[in-house]
Design a binder for these strands. Structure first.
Length: 154
DNA sequence: GCCAACGTTGGC
DNA sequence: GCCAACGTTGGC
């Protein structure tokens, strides 16, 4: 089993939206970065655990955990001209972009903010905390995952 | 709203 | 294949 962190902007799709989704499950559509796509397509397996992170938020924070609920499938929003995630280079034969499905696991009793994580020596190696890091799907170590949970009251 | 850092595009 | 220009991300 692997551990991940997935970013989302609460103004676009936040924890409240995930909670309101059928089965508290959502397709992680709209990722248009190759590295993030490759993590989902190659490395994610159902059952993997996810830190659900609010970016561009006040404050930015890990707010919940989630589970990978399905293997990667083509992200068909890339084929839809009316979608904000439309990519004219995607075709049914080569859909180009992939997504997994994510299911809410536990809401953290206390959100773990970015500022808070920066103060924890054991977390300084997290990709999230590296300068210029904008990858929206990124691996975390089991130790980092556990540490964030502890900070969040789980 | 600003802007640093990054990824992608496209001219050459 | 280089690299300048551009668009995006995301913290502050």
């Amino acid at each position: 089993m692997r551990y991940w962190l997935m970013k989302t902007e609460p103004g676009v799709f936040g924890l409240a939206d995930l909670q309101a989704s059928p089965g508290q499950t959502t397709a992680w559509e709209g990722v248009r970065n190759y590295q993030a796509r490759n993590f989902m397509q190659r490395d994610m397996t159902p059952g993997d655990r996810v830190l659900f992170y609010h970016s561009n938020a006040n404050p930015s924070a890990v707010v919940a955990t989630a589970l990978v609920a399905s293997p990667a499938q083509p992200d068909l929003t890339a084929l839809d001209p009316n979608s904000p995630y439309f990519d004219p280079r995607a075709t049914p034969e080569n859909p180009r972009w992939y997504m997994v499905t994510v299911k809410l696991d536990q809401v953290l009793p206390r959100p773990v903010t970015l500022a808070q994580m920066r103060q924890v020596p054991a977390l300084l190696g997290m990709l999230l905390l590296q300068k210029g890091m904008r990858l929206s799907v990124q691996p975390v170590t089991p130790e980092e995952f556990q540490q964030v949970l502890a900070l969040g009251g789980l």
